[in-house]
Amino acid sequence: MVLTLIEHGDGEIAETSLEMLTLARDLADQVDEDVSAAMFGGEELAAGLGEYGVDTAYVCGGDLSESYAPEARADALGILMDDLDSAAVIGGGTDTANEVLAHLSAKRDLAMAANTLEVDTDGETCEITRQRWGGSLLEHATMEGETKVFSAPDHELPIEPVGDGEAAVETITPDVDEASFEVAIDRVEEADIEGVPLPEARIVIGGGRGVGGEEDFEQLEELADQFDGATVGATRIAVDEGWVSHDAQIGQTGQKIAPDLYIAAGLSGAVQHWVGAKGSENVLAINTDPEAAIMYKGDYAIVGDLHEVVPELTDAIEAATD
């Protein structure tokens, strides 16, 4: 059996889980086994997983689904893994899936490979390809061990409905040790969010070291004001300099964006920045250096000083949209 950890929120199965099922099905085919799913809550969504090749979905309710206690969830997965005699346990590319799987691996002494794109197996050893550096580098590796643990990367694999009808749904109450609930969410605090969050923005104006200062970022804000649904983002250097807050950082250790348009101003296009921005539909770079890496990653470019170009562009757009 290939056991998958399926996450959900807002009444939908998480996209990252559906992406991961593409990897899980491929692995299950190779070892001629079925794919099963473990869920915490979300019973009403479970049958629909059949569409993505899940044979049986096991839904845990009660404390396991109501609170988030990562170790307890790992224990529940471990119990299912034993019951189903699983060859592999796989989760999606989220922090929570990686956390639960790492607990499982640590407690059960299993090997775990995060960000795995491909698995080839003869039934014993697995040859895998996984991402490093946020996807800027690939690692080819071998993996041993009776049960292997993987997570897929976020937004790299395709979601493929295979139309297998409905999955069988079983509600279960695994007998998890009370001590595993010790670390659990105590409370949730709400935050005021201003403007459009970066991952949802339709237009992103990104600034880097070339912007030069906190006040200069206002030029980018003024350009953003010309569009609906636009937000200003930044590189790590701009954040480190204290010009903008870390919430604005795009990249490997910041946020991933996927706008229709990314205007990249005064930033070089380092790999760690680009992994967060490569999902952009169109990229317009503004840079004084015609040889900057961003000039080879973007679609369009203006060679010049952003302090001159950006205000002019703001005025021209204002005139054009009046």
């Binding site: 000039m295 470019a301 010049g304 002019e312």
Partner: peptide, 15 residues
Amino acid sequence: AEVLGEGPEAVDNAV
């Protein structure tokens, strides 16, 4: 990338 021009003169192409 397709270079739209140099400096502020490029903005018309950009629009």
